[in-house]
Computed example of a mutant assay.
Amino acid sequence: MSSPVLEKPANSETTYVILYNVSWEQLEQLNVALLGTSARLTYLDGILEIMSPLSDDHEDNKKTLAMLLEAYMRAKKIRFYGRGSATIGQKEDKTRREPDESYNLGTKKPIPDLILEITVTSGGINKLEIYQRLRVPEVWFWQDGLLSIYCLQGDSYIKVTQSSLLPDLNLNLLAQYARMADQYDAVNEYSQIISKTE
């Protein structure tokens, strides 16, 4: 068994490290060793990304976007099941990831239908490659106040301007409220607006 190789050491500007040549067994050992540290592990084909605890900005953005999305689905009576950041992936796919937020629509399923990813630091492992292997239908990235939507079509993701799962959702309006400074006011005002459009 080869030893993992540290490719990118952490510094004051880097919130993750990358290890190469990591076996699935080594991944499982590191997962146990890092329990309780709030580190997040992402794995693809022997490459392991260890992300340091997430920033307040990351968590605030994630929660605001999730609350807005959930307000929309409740107002439109769309049945959904929040999965949070439950780990997905398996040894056979050579993948492992804890999404920032995830949902099943309609019924509970082993793989999320919709994943939200909040991007604060660029670089690292290609999350879309992981989700493509797992056949996640839709992935949303929030970065610098903008939403990018990727829908699985065939065997690859296509960047789109409208959600396939939620075709009536006004993404520009959702993003506008997600950028508001006050989370409580953002969710309340957005909920009032979407309830009027029923």
Rank of each mutant, 00 (worst) to 15 (best):
I130M: 11
P110I: 12
D113H: 12
C151N: 09
G124L: 10
C151G: 06
Y150A: 02
I111G: 11
T121N: 01
I118D: 03
R135W: 09
P112R: 06
I115V: 15
D144H: 09
I111C: 12
R133L: 14
P112L: 13
L147R: 00
G123E: 05
R133F: 15
G124Y: 06
E129K: 15
V139F: 04
I130H: 09
R135D: 12
W142C: 01
D144W: 04
I118L: 06
V139P: 02
L114C: 09
I115T: 09
P112K: 08
S148Y: 04
V139N: 03
E117V: 10
C151R: 11
S122C: 13
I111Y: 12
I118P: 01
L147N: 01
D144T: 08
I149W: 00
L116F: 13
G124C: 11
R135H: 14
W140N: 02
K127Y: 08
L116V: 13
I118R: 02
V120I: 15
V139I: 08
L116T: 06
L114W: 11
V136N: 06
I111R: 13
R133D: 14
G145I: 01
C151W: 10
D144F: 06
F141G: 02
S122R: 14
E117N: 12
E129P: 13
V136I: 11
Y131D: 07
I149A: 02
G145Q: 03
P137H: 12
L152G: 05
E129Q: 15
G145R: 02
Q143K: 12
G123H: 04
V136Q: 06
T119V: 14
Y131S: 11
P112I: 06
Y131V: 07
I130P: 07
L116A: 09
I111T: 14
E117Q: 10
S148H: 06
Q143L: 06
E138N: 07
W142K: 02
W140H: 04
G124Q: 08
I115C: 12
W140D: 02
T121Q: 02
W140C: 04
V136H: 05
D144K: 11
T121D: 00
T121H: 00
L146K: 15
E129L: 15
E129I: 14
Q132S: 15
L116H: 10
L128P: 09
L134I: 06
R133M: 13
L152R: 05
I118M: 08
G123Q: 05
S148F: 04
L147F: 08
Y150N: 04
Q143M: 08
I149Y: 00
S148W: 02
L114A: 09
S148C: 05
L146M: 14
D113N: 11
D144N: 13
E117K: 10
I149P: 00
P112T: 06
S148I: 00
S122W: 10
T119N: 09
S148M: 03
Q143D: 05
T119W: 03
W140A: 02
L134V: 09
Q143H: 07
I130F: 13
Y131A: 10
F141S: 01
L152Y: 05
W140M: 06
